[in-house]
Design a protein around this nucleic acid. Sequence first.
DNA 1: AAAGTATTTTGGTATTACCAAAAAACCTTG
DNA 2: CAAGGTTTTTTGGTAATACCAAAATACTTT
Lengths: 235, 235
Amino acid sequence: MFQKIKPKKISDEVYEQIKSIILSGKLKPGERLPPERDLAVEMGVSRTSLREAIQKLEAQGFLYQVQGGGTFVKTITNGILDSAIEEFVKRDEAIFDLMEIRKILETWGAHTAAIRATAEEIDTMSRYLDEMREAKEKGQIGHISDANFHFAISYGTHNVMLIHLMKNLFYWIEKVSYEVRSRMYTNPESHEALFRQHTDIFNAISARDPERAYDAMLVHMHYIVGELKRIYKKK
Amino acid sequence: MFQKIKPKKISDEVYEQIKSIILSGKLKPGERLPPERDLAVEMGVSRTSLREAIQKLEAQGFLYQVQGGGTFVKTITNGILDSAIEEFVKRDEAIFDLMEIRKILETWGAHTAAIRATAEEIDTMSRYLDEMREAKEKGQIGHISDANFHFAISYGTHNVMLIHLMKNLFYWIEKVSYEVRSRMYTNPESHEALFRQHTDIFNAISARDPERAYDAMLVHMHYIVGELKRIYKKK
DNA sequence: AAAGTATTTTGGTATTACCAAAAAACCTTG
DNA sequence: CAAGGTTTTTTGGTAATACCAAAATACTTT
């Protein structure tokens, strides 16, 4: 019947505000919060109160801090994949299961982003695509822009759960197949093919063509899995 | 091989120490801790660090504070703050994010199980389908058999990651929409529709027809989401 | 261009001061 | 003396400042 009276403590209000920003998806996993000093000023509270709120959020698994580095948003889906990975005797055997899940989520993501993404979000995708082109022309790897491009697509779905899951998935794929994946970029043909695929995906999304976006992403995923299989066979 | 070096932060050490004192029973529920100022001196740390540790312990439900009163050990640990993922799923909007993910994974799961599932696995599915029929005829809910039926399908994909993901998804969905689901089963028409959908899914898988399995699962998912929307709109 | 070095940024801790609520001590009054 | 009200003290809550330590960045050197 009656509602509980709100928190009176300032640190609690700070806590609630940051929490809801994360849950609503305005702050995305892996993103960095403003420095404590700045954020405290922005919210009109002391650094002490802000830090107490952050401690709580950290204890709950929303944030983590690194001295000198900053304060970052954690994936709320932490621990789900972790327990699954442990079932594999050799960790890198998990890569194909992981890639299969990725294929499912990313194809849907591309399809849905073509429908739901805002102009701004599509703009972000194009920025990362440009970064990849520049990296390729300079002979650099550009795998960070690659990952960011895919994240940008997941943002376009507006499904907060999916955004966190994707981040989590990428973390493990990266961890499990780091050296293998970097080999893909060292081959110029491979690098060129990847860029072409990324361009196709972007064009389809930007043209608001869900089916084409889906297909383009599927081609991309199949290509990566094919390369992975090829490289693992050699070993 | 080697163990990760534990907490270096002072506030973490304070946190660990107080926590272990509580867990060991040296501090009993309801008891009051020494005043912050005294305790800080006793532990040889600043009041700031001590308070940050207390915030964490408060977030985890070990302590509570009252201004002017003191710091007390909690009697019951059910006042504990939920983990990040639980905070996420307990919001009304979250169920649709969850169901969207479930739709993606389950449609793929049905499609793939129609290809990969062994005869024994398909047999397991049919057993749970029978259970559901019996439950329906007896006027029982049978939601456990329902969940098991879906799990059996995910097992049929032979993808360990997917199996884990599905388990977690079901757990949260169950947690969030318990009363909603039970309402669906109490309506006889609804119950009948659900059973027909399950049967369609099973027939397609057992006939090794991936496309039909996919479509049947999609119908099932859309039906559930439709019901959810209808019920949530009422609220 | 690469590697090493210095500077800046950013979280972690300590100290001090003061506010606000609860608890304890004190006083007033019948 | 007892009951009720008032003042003081205790104790958590917030703010501000200073400095330390690790990471990130800018810079210099080779």
